[in-house]
Simulated scan of single mutants.
Amino acid sequence: MAKKMVGLSFPNPSRSYDASRRCVCFWGYDNAREIAFLVDGQMLMKLNPGTRSEETDLLAAFDRSLDQIRELAKTLYKGDQQIRYVIS
């Protein structure tokens, strides 16, 4: 049996900062199924050296690294029942 092709897309450009988890959240979709991705603040600072751990700085770092972050999300996503992934 051939492996099912994962159809993860990112039509929703919104992202938000979660202060309690110190991460930036964004969403991907596999058909109508919404998948949440949380990008750890430390990961954003690693991708963007010199970034401070303030909300506005982490959101800006996320925006600068968007293509790379989406590729990481596609690598993590398995197409199973899991609905939340942490990129750290």
Rank of each mutant, 00 (worst) to 15 (best):
M1K: 11
A2C: 09
A2R: 13
K3Y: 08
K3I: 07
K3N: 09
K4S: 03
K4R: 12
M5Y: 05
M5K: 13
M5Q: 13
V6H: 04
V6P: 02
L8S: 02
S9K: 15
S9A: 12
F10N: 07
P11M: 03
P11F: 06
N12D: 14
N12L: 06
S14P: 05
S14K: 15
S14N: 14
R15G: 02
R15N: 13
R15Q: 14
R15T: 13
Y17H: 10
Y17L: 00
Y17T: 02
Y17S: 00
D18N: 01
A19L: 03
A19P: 09
A19S: 05
S20Y: 07
S20C: 03
R22D: 14
R22E: 15
V24H: 05
V24M: 07
V24R: 06
V24F: 04
C25Y: 02
W27L: 06
G28K: 05
G28A: 01
Y29T: 01
Y29L: 07
Y29I: 01
Y29E: 00
D30Y: 04
D30T: 00
D30E: 13
A32C: 00
A32F: 12
A32L: 12
A32R: 13
R33F: 06
R33G: 01
R33I: 07
I35V: 09
F37R: 00
L38R: 10
L38H: 09
V39E: 02
D40G: 04
D40Y: 04
D40R: 12
D40W: 05
G41Y: 08
G41V: 05
Q42P: 03
Q42E: 14
M43T: 12
M43Y: 07
L44E: 10
M45Q: 14
K46H: 11
K46I: 10
P49C: 03
T51V: 13
T51W: 05
R52A: 10
S53K: 14
E54Y: 14
E55M: 12
E55Y: 04
T56D: 15
T56R: 15
T56P: 12
D57H: 14
D57S: 15
D57C: 15
L58R: 11
L59E: 15
L59W: 13
L59I: 15
A60Q: 14
A61S: 12
A61C: 01
A61D: 00
A61T: 05
F62Q: 06
D63A: 15
D63P: 04
R64F: 09
S65M: 08
S65A: 14
S65P: 10
D67P: 04
Q68A: 05
I69A: 00
I69F: 04
I69M: 05
R70S: 00
E71L: 07
E71F: 02
L72N: 03
L72A: 07
A73C: 11
T75N: 15
L76T: 04
Y77E: 09
K78S: 10
K78Y: 07
Q82R: 13
Q82S: 05
Q82C: 01
I83W: 01
R84D: 01
Y85Q: 06
V86R: 09
